[in-house]
Write a protein that binds this DNA or RNA. Sequence first.
DNA 1: AACTGTGAAGCTGTTCACAGCG
DNA 2: CGCTGTGAACAGCTTCACAGTT
Lengths: 210, 210
Amino acid sequence: MKKVSQGTIDRLILYRKVLSRLRAEGETNVYSHRMAQLVDRTSAQVRRDIMAVGYSGTPSMGYSVEGLLEGVGDFLDDPKGQKAAMIGIGNLGRAIMDYTYGRHPRLSIVAAFDRDPAKVNRIIHGTRCYHTDDIREIVRREGISVAILAIPGEEAQNIVNELIEAGVTGILNYTDIRLKTPENVFVENRDMLRALEKVAFFARFNNREE
Amino acid sequence: MKKVSQGTIDRLILYRKVLSRLRAEGETNVYSHRMAQLVDRTSAQVRRDIMAVGYSGTPSMGYSVEGLLEGVGDFLDDPKGQKAAMIGIGNLGRAIMDYTYGRHPRLSIVAAFDRDPAKVNRIIHGTRCYHTDDIREIVRREGISVAILAIPGEEAQNIVNELIEAGVTGILNYTDIRLKTPENVFVENRDMLRALEKVAFFARFNNREE
DNA sequence: AACTGTGAAGCTGTTCACAGCG
DNA sequence: CGCTGTGAACAGCTTCACAGTT
């Protein structure tokens, strides 16, 4: 596959959500201009992004909502599905599990880990919680490729090392530390304090949108 | 002030954190090359970013850790301080309050809101929780400029309207809906499911870092 | 007439590379 | 010498604008 930018992926994920709402509203077709309006972008950009997935519309009808949804889904998702692990089930871990539960057909959190023995063996939304000592074993056995870090920073690097060793190649990092990872592992940092600082900065000036 | 990109702000926030660690470790000076290494960027970019804050180093010593820290702080922070409100104190709201509590000298969460009467009037880390009906009054009275949305999507737009009317100009949106806001309000979207989808996508290929 | 798909132009942010300095 | 600060080159992404299609 040719290279696709992070921006394009971000937007495709957004288009998918918009499209599924359109479908729910009974729309069968949509023009790039309407899509653009719904996500606050230009129509040219919408068309470019859609080029990346290899789906084509027609000048007369625009895009088929159903067809484009499928095209975007095939592009973004692994057809075999992907499994994720939640590391840490404090308030944040639980919030994310609540929020994502049952929302995605081909991507789901199938295991949770915590080092508090009181939490081990609990079930959250059908997902079993294990001890962090068992990360390597479970991740490997389940074929988990994505991990969400919702723990305090101190332990993070060690756990990440184990995750990677067990086959994880994508990490969603809510920790405030900078992880050291090999080239082929994708890390998305989502430090919440840093996000707040950023918003505070731009709140001080009259500014552009995201 | 001239225009500064979001990327530069993101990195300055990061530099600040790195610098304060260096200070804690007793370092008094630092070169752009070392900074670059610590945040995984090029030295040229570090120097460019620092140009934006208007601080200067010297060829012989690089940058003074103390001086640069102060320069970056003066650039990023409002000297009068800024106040933030937390909207929603479910798991996510509490996680963020725990995590950010006492971590920033010039930016703090001074009020929380929830519509569950059982939560109203509780105190979390010294922060009072009010009913969402009182948002307009409290936000205005306290001079709150930033809000963090940690509620289900349905209510979000209405609450945002009130927040903006009361003077909020920056929103950190953990909701999955796209907010409609006037030009001069800055919105940072942090939908957690979308973040997970993104990581899952890039986890499938051997990829670049953030 | 209005849309898609897309070369090509335009822009923004990043990196190069070097003058100037201690 | 090795560093900073920065003009200039470069790269990547976004937008323009239009040929092709129905």
